[in-house]
Amino acid sequence: MRKYRILSRSLVLILMVVLVFYNLYEKKAGQIGAEIEIENSKVLTAYDYVFGDNNKPMLFQGDFEGGLWSFRFFALSMSDPLSFVVSTVTALEFNFTMFLSILIPLGLVLLFGRFFCAWICPYSLFAELGNSIRKILSKFGIEYFRFDLPKRTPLFYLIISLTLGAIISIPITTLIYPPRIFTEGIYHLILSGFITSGLIFIIFLWLGEIIFSPHLFCRRLCPGGALFSLLGKWRIWKIQKIESQCDSCGVCNPACPYDLNPSAGYFPSECDNCSLCIDACINNNRNALKNVIRFKV
């Protein structure tokens, strides 16, 4: 399961980079006299080889743009549910077009809960990498203390920052939201060549997580995670514990990035089905814990 998750999130990250370069190429190909710029850049030359053809119209011309935060593929426009919530609350106005664009992600969240965190969000990839680095360091005897925030902080942060944002009518909630930061960061890194303050925040956060507390942001601050946890209360995709196969050894508990209690069979909506507890389980061959889709709880 972990292999597939790493693959999926890396694909998302690669796709985001590819898309920005594609849009750059699309513009340059449409401009008169920009052939030299295409020739000078190796990436754009490669794109020219794949998409460009003088006799035919360009492949996918004007058919996709955007990033993880909000994108369009042909007529299908999709946005993060959090972007809709923040925009609606800050402007105090319901936008039907935007509501249509969040329908598919919203449906997926209602069905599968917080799957977005474990399968799509690029930051969780880095967070897990950081956790592995932390484990390697602790093997060499370098022990760090573990810092933690109260349990309900993400929900409170979501509500308070939304309220304050509505008062000053600036969407401050999403300033620390990784999918947005990655979208803008990749865009500016490629097109204007500077590192945005969001990416600097992410780098410091990542280093801080290695030293002080693994998965702290996902667990205790992420506003998107809080929203998806709220929406995914009646999800059908859950990890299940089979009592008869379990030795109650408790190996799965420290593996959980969200500080839940897998050994007690406790999988609330904060669980993002990352299946790290399944990987940690020593009775894995006996299916003591498994990922299941159930229509009835």
């Binding site: 369009r72 946005s79 600036i170």
Partner: peptide, 30 residues
């Protein structure tokens, strides 16, 4: 400022490269 979700899609479709974005150090206009 309240409604814009800062997704940068307008800049990606702009064929003339007219649209630019504010520096991200400033949280209001960012």
């Amino acid at each position: 400022l309240a409604k814009c979700i800062r997704c940068r899609r307008c800049g990606q479709v702009c064929p003339n490269e007219t649209i630019k974005y504010f520096d991200t150090l400033d949280p209001v206009m960012a």
